[in-house]
């Protein structure tokens, strides 16, 4: 029983972290129809920016928002110079090549500037573990989960309540329709790209203290995020959150009770099952109005 509770806690905390990466990916896919292979690189940039800002003397909690701003600024520069010109309306095929190239360039730049060795990202929560009734909870992970849930809830509320948020959803559902509604579609796309990148940067800043900063640190997390996004339904933000929860809990339960070595396959098995039974994903809409 204790093992089950500990496993469920592990899974929930894990899912909250996955959700943050996956939501960024799905927002960008939904509005821009870009498969952002550079997501992991922006994740790494978030961790490195946090680390460098901390080295400049800022405390971790202040370094996080500053790092997110830095990543968003880099994202904006790339969006304005490359992504906007090369990718919008070019479909998913071109986007894979361009975002992959961006990812390689960012990773190479990190190696050049900071070096390839993993570096610790200091956090006041450090290695502290909170023991509640015999259950171990890492303080950093509680912080990651709390911050992810708070940011995602805020984001969901903003999408629902604000006109700009609604316009993001509108562009992701029907970009042509948005054009006919007087919505500045390129502006909304740029905004979505920045939000998605900022979410990746935030995830890197939050998870950095746990996994250390190294140039390819985003790779494994983004692979999981891809399964989450497909599971939840491409472009569906609610789906990404649900998918993250399913994969987080599923992985934790599977690892504890079934088999560690088969766990990464679990996500893909779930993806295949969902695609067979419900091709639009858990929360995705069936395509109604695509021409």
């Amino acid at each position: 029983m204790d093992l089950l509770i500990q496993t469920l806690i592990n899974g929930l905390i894990l899912g909250a972290g996955y959700a943050l990466v996956a939501v960024g990916l799905t927002v960008i896919f939904g509005t821009l129809h870009i498969v952002n292979f550079a997501h992991g690189a922006f994740f790494a940039l978030g961790a490195y920016a946090t680390l460098l800002i901390e080295r400049a003397g800022a405390p971790y909690l202040l370094a996080i928002p500053l790092a997110v701003l830095c990543v968003a600024a880099i994202g904006f520069a790339l969006e304005a110079t490359i992504v906007r010109r090369a990718l919008y309306d070019q479909g998913e095929h071109g986007s894979i090549i361009v975002t992959f190239a961006i990812s390689q360039a960012i990773v190479a730049a990190i190696i050049l500037v900071v070096g390839p060795d993993p570096l610790p990202v200091p956090s006041p929560f450090g290695q502290t573990a909170v023991s509640v009734g015999g259950f171990f909870l890492s303080a950093q992970r509680i912080f990651i989960a709390a911050a992810s849930v708070a940011v995602l809830a805020g984001f969901a509320l903003w999408l629902r309540r604000s006109v700009k948020g609604q316009q993001i959803l509108a562009v992701s559902q029907n970009a042509r329709g948005a054009l006919y509604s007087g919505i500045n579609v390129p502006l909304i796309r740029s905004l979505s790209f920045l939000l998605g990148i900022a979410a990746a940067g935030l995830a890197g800043a939050l998870m950095g203290p746990m996994i250390s900063a190294f140039p390819t640190m985003g790779d494994a997390n983004v692979i999981v995020a891809f399964t989450v996004v497909i599971l939840g339904g491409l472009g569906s933000i609610g789906g990404a959150m649900l998918g993250a929860l399913v994969i987080g809990l599923g992985n934790a339960l599977f690892e504890t009770y079934v088999s560690v070595s088969w766990t990464p396959a679990l996500g893909w098995v779930l993806v295949i099952l969902v695609l067979l039974l419900r091709p639009q994903g858990l929360m995705g809409r069936a395509q109604l109005d695509r021409h």
Binding site: L14, R141, N221, V224, E255, T256, V260, T263, P264, A265
Partner: peptide, 20 residues
């Protein structure tokens, strides 16, 4: 013996299992 894949992002559950 817990053998994990290179794509594993988190080890908490594995360690929980091993501790148990």
């Amino acid at each position: 013996i817990a053998t994990y894949d290179g794509a594993t992002t988190d080890f908490t559950s594995i360690i929980t299992r091993l501790k148990s």
